[in-house]
Design a binder for these strands. Structure first.
Lengths: 229, 229
DNA sequence: ACACATTTGTGCAAAAAAGCACAAATCGTC
DNA sequence: GACGATTTGTGCTTTTTTGCACAAATGTGT
């Protein structure tokens, strides 16, 4: 992970938020959403930290990078803090997502409800398999499903242009992943979520996050093996 | 991530491998497998680093923690290094895996080929949905598929005992994840891969790795938003 | 208005991770 | 068998991340 710290302008000053902090913000956001759903108004750093599994000191320091949104002696207002995090993370925007590779995993991702709920909207499915192209796949979880046509891989650039997709998900086999990535980048995509078990080379300015299921199991196996000794 | 360094005995001495190193070993292993498949005999740290997307210095330091398996002026023997990593990570063992939650994601994981190839074997599927229990689900990728019966969640403990499952995968909705986790732990599972978007509380000695799809997208969105400024 | 109980925000220290630079070891060649 | 070209292994430095401890700020009760 190339942990560059990101800088931005907030009320005039330049604030730097470390990569480690950013990676924890989604968990805070989710916990706050959960608290808001149960109508809780205030929360202490101690409580929020317990829910998200971090130390309260770390939580406070993380939040302090966003601004001073808590009240000493009291805690944080759930809704207010939630809004601040969502704004900082761009979750109030709309994020059109294109999924390349409509195999088992791609389909599971398309169905996945967690995306739609937070500004992420699967707007296009692309695959190279002739038997899949032209078929329709249900996207989104219960309540708000949309049938999406599977487009041909050769139409990738056009599909991205038409749908204005900003985020690309690579759910193809390892062999085709780099090629797909190159075309996504050429089509203007600068943020890629990669499920293929391979390192993607991308030019500067393009972010890639990797989710590697087999690696995770291997890491677990490593620890499991150590326990047995 | 509570990055405790793991210590083990290797040829008499105590070796410590940092969590950061461990998390990169699967990538090295995969690259070496790929090189071995293409019949390459030797590889330099520079080349292997390029494939896996790390710096060559970091790669060498990572590998040096396993032992001195390279030859100065020459590089590393692909097969030999691959074997050493697989041994260190316990990939020559057999790792029976139980998947709890046979929704879209659980099914995709069951189908996923990357597991079977490296000692991981899905031996049991468990769900609470009455309409799923008793049905059969294809496990494994092309070549070596097995039909597995979906067991009732109430039989979780028995299933684990019978199949000797060592690794647990939680692919349930967030609401049921903690309960499932508790029961996995009680049944003797000490390594859990969690796909539910929630922090799992587990006793000491139990490892949890979390894969959070929505979080990954949110982190991408954060960076994407910053780019626009 | 003042003492007191909370809880945040943060300066400082410790630990972990990454990066640099080069000595040590090896191979091929003359 | 010595020399030069490589390439590993590693000590040292820098950066990043985490953890600790407490002052500063707020609300409460008298």
């Amino acid at each position: 992970m190339p942990s560059k710290s990101t800088s931005s302008f907030k009320d005039g000053r330049i604030s730097k938020i470390s990569e480690a902090t950013i990676s924890r913000l989604p968990a805070y956001y989710r916990a706050l959403t959960q608290l808001a759903d149960s109508a809780q108004v205030r929360v202490s750093s101690e409580e929020l930290a317990a829910i998200t599994g971090v130390s309260s000191a770390m939580l406070r320091k993380d939040l302090s990078h966003l601004g001073s949104y808590g009240t000493r002696g009291v805690g944080y207002e759930v809704e207010f803090l939630r809004y601040q995090i969502s704004r900082e993370m761009g979750l109030n925007h709309d994020w059109p997502v294109v999924i390349v590779g409509v195999g088992n995993l791609g389909r599971a991702l398309a169905h996945y409800g967690g995306f739609g709920s937070r500004g992420f909207r699967v707007v296009a499915l692309v695959d190279s398999d002739q038997t899949l192209i032209g078929t329709k796949v249900k996207c989104g979880a219960e309540g708000k499903t949309v049938d999406l046509l599977v487009h041909a891989l050769s139409d990738l650039e056009d599909v991205i242009k038409e749908t204005n997709a900003r985020l690309g998900v690579v759910a193809t086999p390892a062999e085709s992943a780099q090629g797909v990535s190159d075309r996504l980048v050429k089509a203007g995509i600068r943020s890629i979520l990669n499920f293929a078990p391979i390192h993607l080379s991308v030019p500067d300015g393009v972010d890639v996050r990797k989710v590697d299921l087999a690696s995770e199991l291997q890491i677990l196996a490593f620890h499991e093996q150590r326990k047995a000794v």
